[in-house]
């Protein structure tokens, strides 16, 4: 049995459409207009034990909602999900003891107290026995390099240090499944890197299952072999990171170094000109036409150097997201774009 099994999971909710102005608000007292938001639509997903899966998607795509559904914080409109055999939204204690959720934009530690006190509280709530608690705490603080900050009130910690403490709080009861929602948001590069390294090490050592959402491609490329793209509540891609380029980008980028005295004007014939910076030029060429275009180029110009590359991953993903937005209105069109 897989650790996480999701089938046709959907979540929609009604949002009160607030009207501007006094008269409209008065009218709103009697007759309210609601709008349906379909945050997650018929998502199917299976995650095996020990996998580290990234959720990618634009803002409001349904990533966080999916994590909240799997945490049992909210209940779905339809569909099923099982995590380690439990239905999350039944919120059985047996399930709640076995996973953790970390949200980069929220904190659950007591603001005015040293993190140590919040940890003790977790120990009580999760009923971790004293010796094991101390061992786990020592190990985690050592790995994250925050041992000397344990006795400082949380409000005096930097954002990065606070995030590390949040992670420790989440891992104190040794969960088997970890949901991370934007854990590195707003952090500087050093803190980001430290948290990535820690997650990588910890996941490999403990073989726990982690679902991660992030806006930073660096997080994703450093940590996850498997990537799921969610946009507009739907699952659009499930596979390896490099597979995204093969799947969604039908283009290659051809970079040419032309010998001196060559005219750049005619290059547009061969493909879309991305930039010209003499003696360098970048062309976007449909993948299928690369061989013929190369042959034509080489016979028409004197070329000092040439390179054929995949477009940068971030550009591809940005393009995928923007395409989703364009066609968000019509389901069938989207099916055509994402067969």
């Amino acid at each position: 049995m897989a650790t996480i099994e999701i089938e046709k999971l959907s979540k929609s909710y009604w949002v009160y459409q607030k009207q501007e102005g006094l008269r409209a608000s008065l009218r709103g007292l009697f007759r309210r207009e609601y709008r349906e938001v379909r945050a997650v639509r018929e998502v199917d997903l299976t995650v095996e034990q020990g996998e580290f899966v990234a959720f990618l998607g634009p803002n409001g795509a349904g990533k966080t909602t999916t994590l909240k559904l799997l945490s049992g914080v909210i209940s779905p409109s339809s569909g099923t999900a099982r995590v380690m055999g439990h239905v999350p939204w039944q919120r059985e204690n047996a399930y709640r003891r076995r996973f953790a959720l970390v949200m980069g934009q929220k904190n659950q530690l007591w603001w005015d107290l040293p993190a140590q006190e919040s940890f003790r509280l977790h120990q009580q709530i999760y009923r971790v026995d004293g010796q094991r608690f101390q061992q786990t705490l020592d190990e985690l603080t050592r790995l994250l390099g925050v041992t000397n900050l344990l006795h400082q009130p949380v409000r005096e910690l930097s954002l990065g240090e606070r995030m590390k403490m949040e992670l420790i709080a989440a891992l104190l009861h040794s969960p088997d499944v970890l949901f991370l929602d934007e854990p590195t948001i707003g952090l500087d590069v050093v803190a980001q890197h430290a948290i990535q390294q820690f997650l990588k090490y910890y996941q490999q050592k403990r073989r726990i299952t982690i679902l991660l959402t992030s806006h930073y491609m660096k997080d994703v490329s450093a940590l996850c072999k498997r990537v799921v793209i969610i946009a507009d509540g739907r699952l659009h891609y499930d596979g390896s990171l490099s597979g995204i380029v093969d799947r969604f980008s039908g283009h290659k980028v051809v970079t040419l170094h032309l010998a001196e005295g060559q005219a750049f004007e005619q290059l547009a014939r061969f493909g879309t000109l991305l930039e010209i910076e003499p003696p360098k030029a970048k062309l976007r060429v449909a993948r299928r036409q690369v061989p013929s275009v190369m042959a034509a180029l080489l016979s028409a110009y004197t070329v000092d150097d040439v390179a054929v590359e995949d477009p940068p991953l971030e550009d591809v993903i940005a393009e995928v997201f923007s395409r989703v937005d364009d066609v968000a209105v019509d389901h069938d069109v989207r099916q055509a774009v994402f067969p």
Partner: peptide
């Protein structure tokens, strides 16, 4: 932040 409260096995 009530989310966090809902997660706890208590």
């Amino acid at each position: 932040n009530l989310d966090f409260v809902l997660l706890k096995p208590i």
